[in-house]
Write a protein that binds this DNA or RNA. Structure first.
Length: 549
RNA sequence: GCCGGCGUAGCUCAGCGGUAGAGCAACCGCCUCGUAAGCGGUAGGUCGCCGGUUCGAAUCCGGCCGCCGGCUCCA
């Protein structure tokens, strides 16, 4: 069985022998023969009882699929040279009408009905196009997309390393990657300070009691690193920062005058993700959230929520991330994995939708996508190969304040229950940077580039002037490197271009004499000569404005 | 975690039963050059790990580890 998907099609088979990539050419060959023979397809319907009887004892999957077809909908079959399949259709009338420009791309295991407790089928994926050119174009674009894969660029540009000896899913940030990471943190810290956040720092572990109170343990025990037990105590590597921040709130009696209280932390958390889920920077076991928890009154929720949307959109806009979608995750009314009372859930879901609408966001609502403690708004982007990843998230939570029994004193002198908003515009710095690497294809804007300016002296006798240029750039706060290697100028330019350095300054006799630099600007694709001071001032201004070009 | 594939020098890869190779990178030397690779030399690998088959294993088989593509999961 199998449908059409975004980029082609797939078909699931409960095959007695596993299918491997090596089998695909043979299957393709048979498919082409079927097309060439131009076989007719015949559609017919059967009543439910008869349809089930046909597959009973032969194909339990089809029996179940037929049972799932709603009453009143037709149960249709397609027959082609003795082979009959249950299918909603439609199909082409004759196989010869299908253009032969298709390719089976890969095989995979897939659980029946997407349920890991059900048997696993062999799934064959393929793509199909109207013309040979479109197929070729698709395959070419796939190859191009692989070149922007952040795992590949991370190695080529020496940004990060995941070393199995350190542990899978654990990221080692190399000097160049760490510069980008620090710049992103600095950016977020500045923007948050402008918006009334206060920075806190909390430890990497917390007592098991803390997480029992929050409800995260033992509920999520299988995705946490197991408790560390010593003497009479037990600690957990922190899987999230929220409980720590709640305890900061609870440290003293709070007044309504203090709210909203916005506690922010670049907090590193550890989660035991399934080994098969790990993926470069986008799915790791240790990551740093640009986390914050906003404690506010129920009346303030919507306004605070809108402010977080504004911050998130500002961050995306600064980085030129335009291709994202907003997704509101609500509770699945038929599930019991959620905590808290219905009135709070309904209120929170309404507040989120209103906030999103009033901020002019287009969004989809996905039932069952909420956190266990509350509904949320997520910002989702695609990576170079089209896979979706959740970045920023904003969540309303009536539950943790309840569990930790935190209050504030209202104008009436009585205690009231605050609401918490959990939010992280980046989501995780690791994932965000992984996506950013692919978004820029490694060509970071000047303010993020690990090496912003490379200075290439034409011969050894220009080293002195090159160092002067480098000194002027460094004094202006720019990250500049003088290339003193005994290589030809062309070779140096090639190496810096491959490292995707935004600006290369070439200096020789003419420049040294006139106190100028020959500018080779990657973004502007421009080459010009200008006075040293003017170039330094221009570059410094571009960095200060965190400009994209 | 599950299904399938892959694992040879820092990187990209060749070798696929007879005992390890190339290019780039690194290092040393020569060259002093005007916008994407100057020339020569040196060094570097228990062929992921463990076990089996064999006179002999990088090569064949099994287990483990890691990675890749999906599936499931994602507080």
């Amino acid at each position: 069985m199998g449908p059409v998907i975004e980029h082609g099609f797939y078909y699931d088979i409960d095959a007695p022998e596993p299918i491997s990539d090596a089998d695909l050419p043979e299957i393709e060959k048979i498919m082409r023969e079927i097309l060439k023979r131009d076989l007719p397809l015949r559609r017919y319907e059967l009543p439910r009882e008869e349809a089930i009887r046909r597959y009973e004892g032969v194909d339990p999957y089809k029996v179940e699929l037929i049972q799932d077809i709603p009453e009143g909908e037709p149960i249709s079959f397609y027959e082609q040279e003795g082979f009959t399949d249950l299918c909603r259709g439609p199909h082409v009338p004759k196989t010869g009408m299908i253009p032969p420009h298709f390719k089976l791309t890969h095989v995979a295991g897939a659980y029946f009905k997407g349920d890991a407790s059900r048997p696993q089928m062999q799934r064959v994926y393929g793509v199909a196009f109207r013309s040979r050119e479109e197929l070729k174009d698709y395959l070419w674009r796939l190859e191009e997309a692989k070149k922007r894969d952040h795992r590949r660029l991370g190695r080529e540009l020496e940004l990060f390393l995941i070393d199995p000896m350190v542990g899978k899913g654990l990221v080692l940030w190399l000097p160049k990657g760490n510069i980008i990471r620090e710049e992103l943190i600095r950016f977020m810290r500045e923007e948050q300070q402008k918006r009334g956040y206060q920075l806190v720092t909390t430890p990497h572990i917390g007592s098991l009691e803390l997480y029992k109170t929050s409800g995260h343990y033992p509920y999520y025990a299988e995705s946490q690193f197991p408790p560390m037990e010593l003497e009479d105590e037990a600690y957990l590597l922190k899987p999230m920062n929220c409980p720590h921040h709640v305890r900061i709130y609870a440290a003293k009696k709070r007044s309504y005058r203090e709210l909203p209280l916005r506690l922010a932390e670049f907090g590193t958390v550890y989660r035991f993700e399934q080994s098969g889920e790990l993926h470069g920077l986008t799915r790791v076991r240790g990551f740093t959230q640009d986390d914050a928890h906003i404690f506010c009154t129920p009346e303030q929720v919507k306004d605070e929520f809108k402010k977080v949307i504004e911050l998130t959109l500002f961050v995306f806009d600064t980085l030129g991330l335009k291709d994202f979608r907003a997704r509101i995750g609500t509770r699945d009314p038929n599930s019991n994995k959620y905590v808290g009372d219905d009135a709070h859930w309904a209120l929170a879901e309404r507040q989120i939708q209103e906030a999103a609408s009033e901020m002019g966001l287009d969004y989809t609502v996905e039932e069952g996508d909420a956190a266990f403690y509350g509904p949320k708004l997520d910002f989702v982007v695609r990576d170079a190969l089209g896979r979706e990843w959740q970045l920023g998230t904003i969540q309303v939570d009536y539950n943790l304040p309840e569990r930790f029994d935190i209050t504030y004193t209202g104008p009436d002198g009585a205690p009231h229950r605050p609401v918490m908003i959990h939010r992280a515009p980046f989501g995780s710095i690791e994932r965000f940077l992984g996506i950013l690497i692919e978004h820029f294809a490694g060509e970071f804007p000047l303010w993020l580039a690990p090496v912003q300016v490379a200075i290439v002296p034409i011969t050894d006798r220009h080293h002195e002037y090159a160092e002067k240029v480098g000194g002027a750039l460094s004094a202006a706060g720019l990250r500049a490197e003088v290339d003193r290697r005994p290589e030809r100028m062309q070779a140096k330019i090639r190496d810096w271009e491959k490292q995707k350095v935004p600006v290369i300054l070439v200096v020789g006799d003419r420049e040294a004499e006139e106190n100028t630099v020959a500018v080779r600007d990657r973004r502007k694709k421009a080459r010009y000569t200008a006075p040293l001071e003017a170039v330094v001032a221009d570059l410094a201004e571009r960095v200060r404005g965190r400009r994209l070009e």
